[in-house]
Amino acid sequence: MTAESITIRRLKEAFGSHIRETHAYRGDDTVVIDREALVNVATLLKQDADLEYSFLIDITAVDYLKTDKAPRFEVVYHFFSLPHKQRVRIKVPLAADDLEIDSLVPLWPGANWYEREVYDMFGVRFRGHPNLKRILLYEEFEGHPLRKDYPYNKRQPIVKPGGNI
């Protein structure tokens, strides 16, 4: 294993007890953290002079129902630092019966739609989100299709015209 990157080292220094795991599989720096630490970690990533992760590239989630991973869900954040040409992935495990996590909208307004998408597809609720509703699907849709227990071809009735258009 090569030496740890500066990002992982800084995060370990600052949040040692909240960091569950780190790895750099195929060169992608990854840090798994407790959800309580998310906002503080994100703030550090954004503001620290050695890191400067000014871009929130992506937010998504994974449903580990079909594997033996312990908490069922994981919310995955990707950040990018322009001056240091560095990427980092932050993962936050969430249990299926308590799908709540702090929103990053106060830090990055761009998080707004990403979080809505994760809510739409997985049903993860973001605390403090200004407008948490479905984004890709329609209000009448029942369930969250990217969960592993939603069959890919389970169709729902088409909404009659005249409703919301």
């Binding site: 088409i158 909404v159 009659k160 258009i165």
Partner: peptide, 8 residues
């Protein structure tokens, strides 16, 4: 499905 009512 979201588009269908509009088409109709």
């Amino acid at each position: 499905h979201k588009q269908a009512p509009i088409l109709k």
